[in-house]
Design a protein around this nucleic acid. Sequence first.
DNA 1: GAAGGCCTGGAA
DNA 2: TTCCAGGCCTTC
Length: 281
Amino acid sequence: MKGNRFRNLMPELPEVQTLAGELHRSLSGRRIASAAVRNELIFPPGGVEPIGTIAGRRVESVKRMGKFIRMNLAGETILWVHLGMTGQLLLRPGSAPALTHTHFVLTFDQLPQTLSFRDPRRFGRVALSSSRPEDFPAGVRRLGPEPWKVTSQSFVRLCRRRQARIKSLLLDQTFISGLGNIYADESLHRAGIRPLRRSCKVSRERLKKLLQAMKEVLEEAIRRGGSSIDDYRRLDGSRGGFQQFHRVYGRGGKHCLSCRSEIRTVKFSGRTSAFCPRCQH
DNA sequence: GAAGGCCTGGAA
DNA sequence: TTCCAGGCCTTC
């Protein structure tokens, strides 16, 4: 169980969705009193945006787009946050001392807490844009549809015309958005497809199964989303519901829960993939 | 479409 | 001391 702290808080779509919901409930209607940048590296290349201009604006709603958190502010302004790998948005008492690796802090009128963005590895990003889609950050503009928005017919067609390895496609946010390394591996295992297989070589039947698996895995994780974050907070090192959820990810060398064969790992595109050589073809 | 870079903490 | 984890961007 050791070494799983980062895994448990790794923000994939379900964690981002849970977080966006919590932020929405806590901050909607609140007026931003101040915005302080402590580290400019978290802003996209091209310079720090006039982040001070968000002070005085009211939070209208907080939503999720892909793995981005979208904070809609009054005055047709949007504050975007991408958590990267280790990013956290924390609502903490204003009197609490700043945590290490805190890059950005918001305060609100008549709210004793402050909203801090901290990110030890600095893969996360914060950006400001107008509410016009053409002004959205590039990563947002290029987002492909989420699995729920694609028909199985069109998913099959799009996969069959690409030469890429199927897992590369699943991780490509412009092709389909929402899956990270963990859920890509889990979906492929449920669908019985090896990560290295070329997408054009996968049968229509299996591709349909894959789309279904992606939706199921994400939905299941969203249902557990809040609890995975809770697990992280109260993690005592003995067990966590989060791990039980994974059938292949992080289980290289262990036995497959379906057939007891040894889970193998393979590396490509700088990513580790875990799969069962017997269940996946 | 593949590969490297970003970045840091933790494990080996 | 070295290696590894990961999403996204840039470069080849």
